[in-house]
Each structure stands twice: as structure tokens, then as C-alpha cells.
Amino acid sequence: MARHRFTRTQKSLNSQMNVVPYIDVMLVLLVIFMVTAPMMTTGVEISLPAENTKSIKQSDLPVIISLQADGTLYVSHKNAIDEPMDLVALDGLLRQLYAENNELQVMLNADARNPYSQIMAVMARIQQAGISQVSLLSETKPTK
């Protein structure tokens, strides 16, 4: 049969995998990792404390300060439970307890409806008494 100018020729199929696109992708990933690797190692080097495994003794129980929505304060400590108190008396009590135990922990339990300024006023009194270990108590949401 004569070959015409517009006839198609049947080429054999190439069954080998073309790896050129895979090499291109790998080179792009290599460049991305080379650029981002130095960024991941930058930062401030700090020394983390070791795990504290000492048990809490009765004298090391924390002071719990409860701030209700109307602004009234109640303090629970080793000598009293839910003792009503104002900010001036709280300052004196915290200084006294801190003088007895310089590792005193204070936990602040504030109502969600309290203004931020009231909570910060109580935290400022705690800080003025020299106490650095302050925690904020929160309520966990019930799981379904």
C-alpha cells in the first residue's frame, strides 16, 4: 500500500515510567526544606526546669481567693475557710502568710461576670505582697 501524505502512523507504546516530573518535584521540595530549615532552629535558648516531684505538705496548701460577681472577696487558707475580706485586709493576710512560707501559692477564683479591673486589682495586691506563684482557677466545660 502506498503511503499517503495525511495518513497516521501507529507508534508503539512507551511502557517506561517518565521520572523527570518526579525529579523536578523532589528538587523543589529540597529547595523548600533548605530554605526553611534555618528558620526552624532560631529562637531563644532556655533551660527548662526539671519535673517537680515533691508532695504538697499541709503547710504548703495554696491560698484560694474567691471573687464573687458583686466584688466581695472570700479567702481560704490553712487557718480559715471562706473568710470574708476586703483588699486592705487581704494584703495584710498575704504578707503574713508569705512571711511564714516563702513558697506560698495563691489561686484566684473569679466569677465570669467580674470586670477585668476587679480581677487585676486583686492580682496587683497579690503581687505587692511579694507572691509570684499565682494561678487562675477556671471551670471545665462538661463533655457530651
Rank of each mutant, 00 (worst) to 15 (best):
L87W: 02
G92S: 13
I32K: 00
E51W: 07
L73C: 02
M39K: 14
V31Q: 07
G71A: 05
R95D: 05
L61G: 07
N79H: 09
L73I: 02
I65Y: 00
P38Y: 01
T53M: 09
D60I: 08
I56L: 14
E103A: 03
I32V: 14
S76C: 06
V35K: 01
V28Q: 06
D70T: 09
Q68S: 13
K78F: 05
L27I: 10
E51G: 01
V44R: 11
E51L: 11
L90V: 00
A69H: 03
E83H: 09
D60H: 09
K78M: 10
V75Q: 06
P62H: 02
M26P: 01
L90E: 07
P38G: 00
Q58P: 09
D70V: 01
I64F: 06
G43Y: 15
P62T: 03
I65C: 03
M85D: 04
I32F: 05
E51R: 09
P38T: 03
N101A: 12
P62M: 01
I65G: 01
N52Y: 06
V63A: 10
K57F: 08
I56W: 02
N79K: 13
S59G: 04
Q96L: 15
I81T: 15
E45W: 05
L93D: 03
E83L: 11
S47R: 12
I46Q: 14
V75K: 11
A89Y: 04
L94V: 00
I64W: 00
N101L: 07
H77Y: 13
Q58T: 15
V63D: 07
E83C: 06
L29Q: 03
M85L: 05
E103Y: 04
L27S: 08
A80K: 13
Q68T: 13
A99N: 06
L73G: 00
I32N: 05
N102A: 12
H77N: 09
L61Y: 02
N79I: 03
L93S: 08
V88L: 10
M26Q: 07
A89D: 11
A80L: 07
A80R: 13
Q96T: 15
L48I: 08
Q105C: 09
A37Q: 14
Q68P: 01
S59E: 14
L29S: 11
N102Q: 13
L30G: 08
L73V: 00
Y74E: 06
S76K: 00
L90W: 10
L67M: 09
E51I: 12
P62G: 04
N101T: 06
I64T: 14
V31K: 05
R95V: 12
T42I: 15
R95C: 08
L67K: 07
Q68W: 09
L87C: 01
L73S: 01
L48M: 11
T72H: 15
S66M: 07
S59H: 06
F33T: 10
A99R: 10
V35E: 07
L94M: 04
D70P: 02
V35Y: 08
D86H: 02
E83T: 04
R95S: 09
